[in-house]
Design a protein around this nucleic acid. Structure first.
Length: 295
DNA sequence: CACTTGACCTGTCCGC
DNA sequence: TGCGGACAGGTCAAGT
């Protein structure tokens, strides 16, 4: 479930909280969550200093000094929650406005979904992942950008250098596919997942099953405009919490309060009043207004 | 070659 | 109340 806005929110939190700290120890409760070929890898982690945090598509990169980086994919249910040794270090719990600090995971960790525990100099970073699809991996920072998982990604959906023309060209390379499938394809555009695909398609009045070649350039430009708008609003609201997502402080995001179709099946469309439907598009749950979004 | 489906997992919800 | 099955969604490998 963490898509671009959720991962971006986590990245901002982790950057504020973790940079400058040293890794003191690591504990793995589920080997696949942080696979390590040989225990030699531990020696590259222990004593390393966190120098920076990045987001690449839906992935997070924790850059270590001197030479390595931890790359993390949260998939659907992954969480990265930091608990400082001194709770007063955490600052204003209400900084996202819509968050629910009373539901915070702080004080309840580790729990049975905790897969990896990184003990740092000033606190503990928990990697929780109910469904075990997420992972952390260790790479040499120098070779990271050459790995297939990163070099195969398309430009980030919020990359300012992704012009309208370039967006349209990349989408058109998949001319025979359904537009929603293309939006979800990370090698075309990186960062979009199910929630923001549905939201941006509703906003641009495009049916998710429309074949790309049936769409005009104007419609695709409109789609990019609405996608950027939706992603920025979601970042402003601290992301979407459906079930599992929390930010680095353990707080929920409030975007779903503003969602127009996602998880609104049976409720009226805010544009025309028609009832929101739920269909399947290539196996993915898809929310649409059949009156606003016609094939 | 382009596209679709199944596997990876666990927890929750629904109907019988 | 218990049980089986569908569902949730990101990505890759395998299948069409």
């Amino acid at each position: 479930m963490p898509e671009l806005p959720e991962v971006e929110t986590i990245k901002r939190g982790l950057k504020r909280l973790l940079v400058g700290q040293e890794i003191l120890s690591i504990e793995r409760n589920w080997h696949k969550s942080f696979p390590i070929e040989s225990n030699r890898s531990n020696k590259f982690l222990i004593g390393a200093k966190i120098s920076d945090i990045h987001r690449i598509g839906k992935m997070l990169v924790i850059e270590l000094y001197p030479a390595f980086s931890i790359i993390i994919h949260l998939k659907m249910t992954g969480q990265l929650v930091y608990v400082p040794n001194n709770l007063s270090d955490i600052g204003d719990m209400n900084r996202f406005g819509g968050g629910h600090p009373t539901d915070s995971l702080i004080g309840k960790l580790p729990d049975k979904s905790t897969r990896v525990i990184l003990t740092l100099s000033k606190g503990i970073l928990y990697f929780n992942d109910q469904r075990k699809f997420g992972w952390m991996k260790l790479y040499k920072t120098k070779s990271l950008l050459n790995t297939a998982m990163i070099s195969n990604l398309g430009p980030d959906a919020l990359d300012a250098s992704l012009t309208r023309g370039e967006f349209v060209n990349r989408i058109r390379k998949r001319s025979k596919s359904k537009i929603k499938v293309v939006l979800l394809d990370q090698s075309t555009i990186a960062g979009v997942g199910n929630i923001y695909a549905d939201e941006s398609l509703w906003a641009s009045k495009i049916h998710p099953e429309t074949i790309v070649e049936k769409l005009s350039d104007l419609e695709l430009r409109c789609l990019q405009f609405e996608l950027i708008k939706v992603l920025n609003l979601a970042i402003e609201k601290g992301g979407s919490t459906d079930k599992n997502y929390v930010n680095a402080d353990g707080e929920k995001g409030s975007y779903l309060t503003y969602a127009r179709v996602f998880r609104r099946t049976g409720m009226p469309c805010s544009e025309c009043g028609w009832t929101i439907s739920k269909i399947k598009v290539n196996g993915r749950g898809t929310h649409i207004c059949l009156k606003c979004q016609k094939l």
